[in-house]
Write a protein that binds this DNA or RNA. Sequence first.
DNA 1: TGCAATTATGTAAATCATTACATATACTAT
DNA 2: ATAGTATATGTAATGATTTACATAATTGCA
Lengths: 180, 180
Amino acid sequence: MLNTLSYGLLGLLASESCSGYDLMLRIQPFWQAKHSQIYPLLAKLEREGFVQYVRIEQRDKPDKKVYSLTEKGTEAVLEWLGEPPAEQSSRDELSLKTKCIWMTQRDISIPLFLTRLKQLETRTAYYEKLLQRIPEEERHVHSKHFGDYVLLHRAISLAGAQIEWCRWVVNMLEQEEELS
Amino acid sequence: MLNTLSYGLLGLLASESCSGYDLMLRIQPFWQAKHSQIYPLLAKLEREGFVQYVRIEQRDKPDKKVYSLTEKGTEAVLEWLGEPPAEQSSRDELSLKTKCIWMTQRDISIPLFLTRLKQLETRTAYYEKLLQRIPEEERHVHSKHFGDYVLLHRAISLAGAQIEWCRWVVNMLEQEEELS
DNA sequence: TGCAATTATGTAAATCATTACATATACTAT
DNA sequence: ATAGTATATGTAATGATTTACATAATTGCA
């Protein structure tokens, strides 16, 4: 039994062999992990026979290790896919702060939600751009990019719901200003 | 400088003094933390003067320590509220598995989303119940429960968006079944 | 020319978080 | 009776994660 991050890395390698650096960038949107966690984990997965690598020399950039799945690695991913998904866990500092807005004045509370709005709008724009890069012919169930396609859809729709929510809260906080 | 969980606990204590056990239950929806993390943290916050406690004897239940904010604790919360919120971070195993659905058959992929649907429906029902418990007169900006009110609204709307998304994905996976 | 950013990999120390161990009372269902 | 659940608090060991330390090539900018 491996941990979730390990399975996530193996899952990414299933669709395309790549370097630890690439894995770090690709897993970011779904599971935050720094390179200092990923490199030792890949080394461990290699020692245990789930992945293998070849060193690739590059002219313009430093050498890299391109990892690929072994048969054992592929089996591990398929076994993992058969198990029910763990509940989603989210950690949002804004939620904790929202529980305290009764303590604050509008000059403190409103900027919290305006900052979040900007974060959400920036991320939405980024997701939209990524979505546009997936051509029509790769948006079907059997495409390797079907997962990316549906995940981007979810990310955009959730961000939209949160943007609406932030505006609703800011509105209420602003209306209160007129009364006080 | 304290960590986010510490500020979250202090923030909860700002609206109502309560036991470590209560804090654990109350912070759960926004920040997952076990009692084994919370009890030592409260002890540390007490040693450092952010909180204080009184031991309360109970007839039908074990004794408890009821924690309350000190002046230093209140100042720390207000300072924390003035800082911009950190970006939301979510960890969802289903996202990682979704990136791999191209590897699977419908009999593996569809149950993943059906399981998530059940999880979301259960949570929505729970949130709806909590929301109903907040009376109209406590849903305004100056109420101590305004935060709970708006957070429940967000949780319900996000769960709704995710339910729709799961159904959309399941539909696509099922339609593919007819063709294969 | 120097400074920052990007690509690329790694280790060490510190902190954060979970699991397991431990205890104790009271209530409820089988 | 006894098993399970809820309340209530704690520690110890392990595992996960972040921050800081380290190196090195290339590109772009001021």
